[in-house]
Design a protein around this nucleic acid. Sequence first.
DNA 1: TGTACATCAGTGAACGCGCGTTCACTGATGTAC
DNA 2: TGTACATCAGTGAACGCGCGTTCACTGATGTAC
Lengths: 196, 196
Amino acid sequence: VARYGKAQKEATRQRILDTAGRRFKRDGIDGSGVATLMADAGLTNGAFYAHFSSKDDLVATTIGDQLRAQCDQFSQWAEQPAGMEAAIRSYLSEEHRDHPEDGCPSAALLDEIGRGSPEVKRAYTAGLLPVVEAMAAQLHPGDPQAAHGPVLSIFAQLLGTLQLSRAVDDPELSRRLLQHGIDTALSLWAEHADCA
Amino acid sequence: VARYGKAQKEATRQRILDTAGRRFKRDGIDGSGVATLMADAGLTNGAFYAHFSSKDDLVATTIGDQLRAQCDQFSQWAEQPAGMEAAIRSYLSEEHRDHPEDGCPSAALLDEIGRGSPEVKRAYTAGLLPVVEAMAAQLHPGDPQAAHGPVLSIFAQLLGTLQLSRAVDDPELSRRLLQHGIDTALSLWAEHADCA
DNA sequence: TGTACATCAGTGAACGCGCGTTCACTGATGTAC
DNA sequence: TGTACATCAGTGAACGCGCGTTCACTGATGTAC
């Protein structure tokens, strides 16, 4: 028998997920503690376990949530003409490089996910597939399945370039990385695109 | 006036760096504590500060050391014919995917480096350039400078693919990622190569 | 409609633990004579 | 060559702190009558 309105609890849970997404992407998963994270969400540490069974549970759920958001966002880009080019330019922008907390969860967290628990990897895999499918439907509307390989390679190149641009100390080199990354991604996209 | 043999201390320091490199790549930087790391190197925690001024100092130094090792390793590949193809196949092998502690520091640590201190980023940038130069000299012996852009894009694609293959839960998908990554990297390499 | 009650999201202190760092010390070493 | 000494790499306990998690509790809520 549900006593409290389910809606309030659900809203709080989503607030925790949003806060966790931003914190993880900014400070890393290992770099974000439960107590400070809950404080950011306007709650105290104890309330955490009314919503998640452990930090690992939160990590897995947050990653799924972040990828769902990214997939929705990409679908919006895809609706307009030349959406893919705009999406690539936005992905490899200085804006995105400088604001990981608002950006791609893969670029911010991928090597931590690779070291994560099976649950975390399962959540990542499940969340990644719809993103890949959405991109593949753009690249090869006729046979999306065949486009998975190229899409994954392009995604890897985008994400690697963004990480490099963030890790590098020299602003000029960082800028060139983004610029060459855009050129390479666009040419890979054009090469595999189904323009027939 | 140097009392102890400089050589012993240098050997110990290098042992700490090797241990740190493996631990960081396996468990992450935030996931590796100074005390356990020193125990792995056969020492106690207190000795650490005879070699490094802080953990951050160790991190920056280790990253520089790891990239130097990677650069030497790549130069060895480059000496034999078709070395680049062999290097790419080795980079995107299941062996490399399954043993990050022996592998590429960029693939294992890049997003943690992006969140690191200015010293860490400086060490990464300084260490990355020789690797890029070595690859560029292979791609465009005539004008290596012009090859920096393509080399960085290929490197980004390799490193992103390896991270994805580690983060993904599905063995079949992971295998396909590596396979398509090899194809894409080889075609990018061939496209920019100076075969004249 | 008003009151008594059960629920449970959220509180906040406490738990044991590992973190990065400090420090008084030990003892093997290379040097000086 | 033998002895006294200064050096300093390495020891191991301790520091305050934040970690993930537990737990007795509070008090606003929706329900029952």
